[in-house]
Amino acid sequence: MRWGELIRRLVLVPPTLFGVAVIVFVLLRIVPGDPIAMMIPPGASEADIGRLRALYGLDQPILQQFATWLGQVASGDFGRSISVRQNVLELLLARLPATIELALVATIIAVLLGVVAALVGILLRGRRAEWVVDGGIGVLLAIPDFLWALILLLLFGVLIPLLPISGRVDPEIDLNLHSNFFLIESILTGHFDIAFALLHHMILPALALALPFAALVARLLKASLAESEDQDYAQVARARGYSRPSILLHEVFPNALIPTVALGGVQVTLLLGGTVLVERIFSYEGIGNMAIDAVINRDFPLIQGLVLAFAVMFIALNLLVDLVVTMLDPRLRHG
């Protein structure tokens, strides 16, 4: 990706976010369900309901509401959550790092597992044992992340209680950190005991998110490796007397990585989407878990903020994938 292309993509970000904002804003107000109805005690008077409605601006026409909200968002004010009664931006900034860290750890686990599985599979290419690898990948791929979450929770939380099954960290641990990126900050500042405690809590949800994604990485990479190995340059490398493992690692792998990152990188969005249910199952305090509460309570401002946060992450991820692919493929770097 050249500079011009990068700028073009960045220019497209605001209109994309605007489109997302319109859709979520309108959808929320079309579908049945009313935040006020969720708040009021039974038997509240019509007048009370009307006052509450006016308080949150819900008595205005949709267009008016949208204009007001957009104006606030533009100045960095995402409004107040109706159900939690806190500033939406502050809620997001407090919870988002937890989800980003979880997704990051899950992605790292998935890439490690996927790459190893793909390399083992390709080394066994043409032998009967290749079927075992392919079968394993198929099973991992067939079971969705939330089901893995339940399986892992039952296995390692209940049957063999090895790992904690809820929360981000033990409440008695004094974190004393400056940012909400607990894991990253504790590693960077050398507090490895805290990092370990955080990872201890993260491992089950991260694994649940990672397993299907690892299978996806493995399948993509193995297919790319097989295709690259059949290319002329790999055959010519054999004619130079290089060993097969060396060819796979040094000649074939750098080529196979390109389509794998291009196709698989975008799929990290699926993993991010998976955090919603998985965080819920493990009571992990990220934005996915918060999203479910927000939806149950019809908390319009919070839902709108959350959707925009997810949209920004998806857009950033797509840009990142394109940048990495450009780094990996010299043919894209030059005219």
Binding site: V236, A237, R240, G241, P254, P330, R331
Partner: peptide, 24 residues
Amino acid sequence: RRNLLGRRIALIPQDPMTSLNPVK
């Protein structure tokens, strides 16, 4: 045999467009 290949026995491949590794 691998010790001979590329050293004592060498290949000039058919298609120069695809016989060099594109990313190296």
